[in-house]
Each structure stands twice: as C-alpha cells, then as structure tokens.
C-alpha cells in the first residue's frame, strides 16, 4: 500500500540539500574570485554549483501536486517560497554564466570586470539560496522543532560545509588548471566548520529540549531517544560530522576525499531528519489519537464500492 504524504516529503529534503550545497559552492566561488583571485576552484566545481541548484529545483517541482503548473510559484512576492524560487533561478543563471569564464572558447572569458560583477552576484544569490530553506522552516510557528532563527544558522552552516566538501571532491576529480593553493586548504576549512556544526547542533537540541515550550521539548525528544535518534546520533553526528572532521584533518588526499563524501551524506541526512522532525505540529489534546485512526494511504475500504 502506498503512503500518501500530507506534509512535505523526502524530495523537499533532497531539494534543500542540493540547493543548499549549490548555494554554498557559489558563495565560495564568489568570495574567492573577489578577494583571492580567479582559478582557485575547479571548473567542474564552478559548473556543478548551479547544476546542483537546478537539481534541487527539479525535485521541488516533482514534489508538487501539479508539477506542470510549477511556474505559478513565481507569482506571490510576499511568499518566501516565491522569493526562494526567484533567487534559485538567478543563482543558476549567474553561476552558469560565471563558469563560462573558465573556458577560453568564449570570447568574454578575458573580461575581468564582468567576471568580478558575476562573482559578486554569485556570492549574493548563493548566500540567499543557502540560507532561505532555514528561514522558510524557522518561520513556521506551528512546527515546534523548526520555529526560531536557530534552524537558519544550521542550514547556512551545513550549506557552506557541503559547499567546501563538494568543491574539494570536484578538485580531486578535475583539478584547477592554474593554482591549487587555496583548494588544498579546503579540507581544513571543512574541519573547522564541522567542529562548529557539532557544537551548534548540541546547543540547538539542548535549547529546544530545555529552554523552549513544552511542544518544543516533546518534538525534540524524537531526536534524543525517539525514532530519529539513531539516524541523528550515529548517522549525522558520528558518520556525517565527527568522522569527516577527523578525516579532513589527515594529510592523505584519499582520506580527505572520503571525508568530503561523508560530509555530503551527512548533509543530506540532516535535511531528511529536519524535514521529518517538522511533521510534528503543536498537537491539541486528543488530536494525535484521532489522526492515528485515519487512513494513511490507499486502504482498501477507501475504494471498496468503486469495484
């Protein structure tokens, strides 16, 4: 029996992952070009950043009940999803155009000022794309695990970590043609951010458990010893954060690559868990019992008299 999703499902979580990683990659590309110089990242990484955002957008479209009418999401300027859709579109465009500056076949590849402008635009739009899922979730008043600005910081941080890791992996596969000095430091940046991420997650869970409302405390219990706890503690904290932190500090490129791959898996898992953690509303007394009795999918009795 197939399960019907009455709330956001795994595709949105994967969208958050790809869009966040792509946004983080654009932030890194933009910052390096503006303040260090061109050619510090792999051309493959420069291309993959906007491509990842595109993959995220595609999954968002597939999640819709009417995917062929997806263009309607651009309509309401007051909605944060609309802002996100516009910024993702801009980020994909600016990112792909910026990546063309790495190819000599394009006559504009030597236009330094245009490249700098695009780098700035990549930084701005990438930063918004990396941050907006956290803002989107943090504004949900009725979802106790998400509500508040903390989730925004966690998403931005994870986007940057996965961005560094993805650039590192792209550099292993397709090294920059000129300079590799900065790219070689990416595993160290990743390790620093992972340590910060570990600290922030402990703080977030602790504050939600002890310092928030009763409904926040109940929602957080799932992460401590509930159905999400194993995936969170072993999957995300141990194998998605702590293990890659150690591997990133090693001097072996292959171990660093394994660490970067684990960072990506951890980032995807974290978003899956956060989206699932938002299934919990602030329930009214008796509501969960009532809703637990409702059909979850295509139960036979729903179609019994159509035969």
């Amino acid at each position: 029996m197939s399960q019907k999703h009455d709330v956001w499902g795994w595709m949105l979580a994967v969208d958050f992952f790809f869009a966040g990683m792509g946004g983080g990659m654009l932030v890194i590309v933009g910052l390096l070009d503006l303040f260090v110089g061109e050619g510090r990242t792999s051309l493959l990484g420069n291309v993959l950043g906007p491509v990842f955002i595109g993959i995220g957008s595609s999954l968002l479209i597939l999640e819709l009940g009417r995917p062929f009418q997806a263009l309607r999401v651009f309509v309401n300027p007051k909605a944060i999803l609309t802002a996100g859709a516009w910024f993702m579109s801009f980020a994909i465009t600016f990112g792909l155009v910026y990546a063309t500056f790495g190819l000599d076949m394009f006559f504009w590849s030597s236009w330094v000022f245009a490249r700098k402008v695009l780098a700035a635009l990549c930084f701005i739009t990438g930063l918004v794309v990396a941050t907006y899922p956290g803002i989107l979730l943090g504004r949900h008043k009725g979802r106790p695990f998400w509500h508040g600005p903390g989730i925004m910081i966690l998403f931005l941080l994870s986007s940057l970590v996965t961005g560094f890791a993805a650039h590192s992996l792209a550099g292993f596969v397709f090294p920059p043609s000129t300079l590799t000095d900065v790219l070689g430091m990416f595993p160290k940046f990743t390790a620093g951010l992972l340590a910060f991420q570990l600290l922030l997650w402990f703080g977030y869970i602790w504050v939600k458990k002890s310092g928030g409302t009763t409904s926040e405390s109940i929602a957080t219990q799932r992460w401590i010893n509930g159905d999400l706890s194993s995936s969170f503690q072993y999957g995300f904290l141990l194998f998605g954060t702590l293990a890659p932190l150690v591997l990133s500090l090693s001097s072996s490129p292959s171990l660093q690559a394994v660490g970067a791959a684990l960072v990506l898996l951890g980032g995807a898992l974290m978003r899956m868990l956060v989206v699932r953690g938002g299934e919990d509303r602030t329930w009214f007394p008796g509501e969960q019992k009532y809703r637990s009795r409702l059909p979850k999918g295509n139960e036979a009795f729903l179609k019994a008299w159509n035969k």
């Binding site: 019907k4 999640e63 009940g65 995917p67 009418q69 309607r72 009725g142 509303r281 809703r291």
Partner: peptide
Amino acid sequence: KKCISCKACVMACPYGARVPNHEKGTI
C-alpha cells in the same frame, strides 16, 4: 485553479486545517 499543492500552507497552518486532495492535486 491557482493551487499547485506545494503544501507550503499545510506546513504553515498551526491548526492542521488544510488537507491535500491527492486526486485533484490541490489543497
């Protein structure tokens, strides 16, 4: 006719008052 069932409203409503219609693809 304007709804694409993105479920943003379902998630935003603190009262659980919005229901996806999986046959129509709307909320």
